[in-house]
Design a binder for these strands. Structure first.
Lengths: 173, 173
DNA sequence: GTTGTAATTGTTATATCATAACAAAAGTTT
DNA sequence: AAACTTTTGTTATGATATAACAATTACAAC
């Protein structure tokens, strides 16, 4: 079983993603610090490290995968440790849960109101978060036509990402 | 015998029944029979009964809840029994999995191509399946703009259903 | 109707995901 | 420091799902 460790920060493709991944981790963490201070929340060591590890994996991370990484670093290795950290991060809007994978992903827009859509590649298993505001509005309207008041949503789209559609151009992770 | 393909079933509680629920079970089962014959699939006793029980519950049913019901009726009570039946029904398009609930729901449109959207009431926990074809098209287009080729999707909307928004009119289960 | 084959089901065990309950420690306020 | 709140440690269990292999059943070919 080949498993990527936290050292693989590669964002799987030359085309679709051309940023330095360390930067996105740094900015996510910086944003998290600011948000927590603003909201009077405490980003403790384990919470902060959990968030970093989720970002470093750069794809959705299972709770027990995260727990193992935390345990390697000397944190407590019982499940409540990781689920508490995940709960905190979810409530703070710093991560999302990908329901169809039972896995957790850093939120790319934690600092602003947004509507998360996830594009999950069947092939490389990378996940991209998008924000389709107009579709969100349309969904609210459609639901309202049926008398339904929308409060939250889970939108997970699976298929082939740009890189995996063109195997000649991009390697698979 | 044509299947009832209308949306907007009032799936609200055991008591308030604005349609005859037995009819929708019967038509779902009749459709299932036809589809299985067409596709050379065998709707065995346990598969058929699993599908009936899912429809009878009239809201998403967990695998182990279903297993318990099957066991009461003399079917084998080990987990593979129910997961095999669920796999079969999922592959045949006769049920859907509601990812955010880890539960299974009869498909209201098994006999036609459709795009499932689930409206999940936070209050009464009923789930309605809708088919927003235009939003689906918009999603395909948006994803394509990002180079993503959409193959499947999970869209689960939570909020308040019509009945629960008006407590004066409808009882809660 | 027996035989061969594939599909289905039975059975045991285990993997994976998540929470309950209560004790201990650390942070915060006074 | 005392009182209080939040966070973390610890043990146990609940909930969801699959692997692996044996036994049985359905069904077609003979």
């Amino acid at each position: 079983m080949k498993k990527n460790t936290s050292d693989n920060h590669d964002h799987h493709g030359e085309q679709s993603v051309s940023h330095n991944h360390n930067d996105c981790i740094d900015s996510a963490l910086a944003t998290a610090e600011i948000l927590c201070v603003e909201q009077g929340q405490r980003l403790t060591k384990v919470r902060r490290r959990a968030l970093e590890l989720i970002w470093e994996s750069h794809r959705p991370l299972g709770a027990y995968q995260l727990l193992a990484k935390l345990a390697e670093e000397g944190f407590n290795s019982a499940p409540p440790t990781v689920y508490r950290a995940l709960d905190f991060l979810l409530n703070a809007g710093l991560i999302h849960k990908v329901e169809s994978m039972n896995a957790y992903l850093g939120c790319s827009h934690a600092d602003k109101d947004h509507q998360g859509y996830f594009l999950i590649c069947d092939d490389c298993h990378n996940v991209m978060e998008s924000d389709y505001q107009d579709i969100h509005s349309a969904l609210i309207a459609k639901a309202a036509q049926q008398g339904f008041e929308l409060r939250a949503k889970t939108i997970e789209l699976t298929g082939l990402c740009a890189d995996c559609k063109m195997p000649s151009e991009g390697g698979r992770t």
